[in-house]
Design a protein around this nucleic acid. Structure first.
Lengths: 116, 116
DNA sequence: TTAATATATGAACAGTTATTCATATATTGA
DNA sequence: TCAATATATGAATAACTGTTCATATATTAA
């Protein structure tokens, strides 16, 4: 690969792509959002929280796995601002961070023709 | 953790969550779609292809990295049906698989308030 | 204060993944 | 057919990620 004598059309697209490419930082931010919802165990937690807020005990009940594993995943989802937590006595009650989270999930599934 | 004497409300949510939890297979399918677009290098390729179809040479030019690395990522995006390819002489020309891909990207960015 | 419950977390390990390097395949022009 | 160009790919390595195990923290009830 040294040069590419391809049609001028594609070259212009490449120029435009380079010019309009978001910075590393922005790309990373978008990627990290998708990454947060790209793991089955985390996705299950989000699906579970569609029903409303729940404490860890019940999340574990709903999604399976160990308390520790779920707790670690909750931390990741929380860091990604997809869920929020509040303490209620001995329990920590989790819920979806805002309506955008669910919207992204459902819109994506609809667009990609996933029956969820 | 043995029992959870939490409010009945949360318990009902847990029951509903378990009942409405999609099967392992469906969750995995959704997760794999998100995974395909959760890596910065792949995300850049998709952003580049917003401008229109491009051959590998120009994609490399637009997103950076080596030809080999880009080619590997193109394979992954193609396997995930997010991009499609056609041969044009010596070149392979790639483009977004359909309008849904772009829609998901843009909707997500809009919802998450990412200026992309 | 002590015991029990609920949740979080650090370290270690296993599995996964992105990149690199070398090389292979395919197309074109001479 | 041969050389050059464009792209793909297998293997190896390094980095990352999810789970487990043991343990720590925080709250409540006794």
């Amino acid at each position: 690969m040294t040069t590419c004598d391809h049609e001028e059309l594609h070259h212009l697209a490449a120029e435009a792509a380079k010019a309009n490419m978001p910075g590393e930082e922005d790309v990373g931010r978008v990627a990290s959002v998708f990454k947060a919802i790209s793991e089955p165990s985390r996705l299950k937690i989000l699906f579970a929280l569609r029903q409303g807020e729940m404490c860890v005990f019940h999340i574990v009940e709903a999604v399976g796995g160990t308390q520790s594993a779920v707790s670690h995943q909750l931390r990741i989802l929380r860091d990604a601002r997809m869920i929020k937590a509040r303490r209620d006595g001995q329990n920590i009650v989790y819920s979806l961070a805002d309506e955008h989270v669910l919207a992204v999930l459902e819109l994506t599934c609809a667009h990609l023709n996933c029956k969820i």
